[in-house]
Simulated assay, not measured.
Amino acid sequence: MTFEPPAVPPSYTPPPQSPAPQAPAYQQQQPSYAQQQQQPQPQQQQPQPHHPGYPQQPGQNARPPRAKNTLGFVSAILGASGFLLGFIFTFIQLGMYATNSSGAYGLLGGTQSVLDALLGLGAIALGVLGYLKGGPSKLFAIVGTTLGVALLLGVLNGLIFTIALPLIY
């Protein structure tokens, strides 16, 4: 089976037109369709739809990039890592308590308190700086500052307990 192109229709010739009536002198003559086609038209750029998976062209409904608050993000990480470190130390201390290693138990508790205090102070300092930096992304700075304050309150609670225990017991 071979491909054969379709038959070519006979050429079309438009019917002859009568001359157009002359416009009065006081009216401005409009250019004909053929003249309009010859004149250069200003090109209007049509917005093209965005296709998922392909980057947008510059200037096509592109959202401005969000401001990043790196200080606030690091503050939140420091605050959260203090609590994660607390869970790890708790399980280590439980294991040490079960083996009757009371000397290392106290040393590990003191190390945890010092690390919590350092992480809490770092989270508070970076959180406040991240909040003062401004911008739309202040949430991480607020979370980091709150977690840092909570860590310091936990250290203060442990310190009060350690000082008050010998006085009462």
Rank of each mutant, 00 (worst) to 15 (best):
G144V: 07
H51Q: 13
P9V: 14
P65G: 10
A25C: 02
P10I: 11
G72T: 03
N61R: 10
F91D: 08
F91L: 14
A80Q: 05
P24A: 09
L115Y: 04
G79L: 07
L152K: 07
I92E: 02
M96P: 01
Y97G: 14
K138M: 07
A20H: 04
Q17E: 10
I77T: 12
M96F: 13
A150K: 06
P42A: 09
P49S: 05
I142W: 03
L121G: 14
V74E: 00
G127C: 08
Y54F: 11
P14A: 10
V155K: 01
T99P: 00
G135W: 05
E4P: 00
F73M: 09
V74Y: 07
V155A: 08
L151R: 03
Q39K: 11
A76Y: 00
V74S: 03
S102E: 09
L84I: 15
I163M: 12
A117R: 02
P40Y: 01
G53D: 04
F73K: 02
G110D: 14
P6Q: 11
S102C: 12
Q45H: 10
L119V: 11
N157P: 00
G72I: 02
Q45S: 10
I124V: 15
F3A: 09
P5S: 13
S102W: 12
P16E: 13
L94T: 11
Y97Q: 15
S137G: 02
I142E: 04
I124S: 00
K68F: 12
I124D: 00
A23W: 09
A20Y: 03
Q38C: 03
A98L: 13
P58M: 01
L78I: 08
L85V: 09
A67P: 09
I88D: 04
Q43P: 01
G144L: 05
A98H: 11
Q57P: 04
P16G: 09
L115E: 05
A62L: 13
F140D: 01
P52L: 03
Y131M: 05
A104F: 11
S32A: 09
P64C: 11
Y97W: 13
Y105M: 15
G130H: 01
G109K: 08
Q43T: 12
Q41T: 07
G144Y: 02
P47A: 12
P64W: 14
Q43K: 11
G53E: 01
P58N: 05
T111H: 07
P24H: 04
A25F: 06
P15I: 07
G130C: 02
S102P: 01
G82N: 06
P65K: 10
P10R: 13
I92G: 00
S11Y: 07
T13C: 01
G82H: 02
L121V: 15
G72L: 00
P64K: 14
Y33R: 09
L165F: 12
M1I: 11
L152D: 08
A141N: 05
A123D: 08
L126V: 07
S102G: 06
L156F: 15
G82D: 05
Q45P: 02
A125I: 14
L147D: 02
P166D: 05
Q36P: 00
Q35I: 06
P52W: 02
A125S: 09
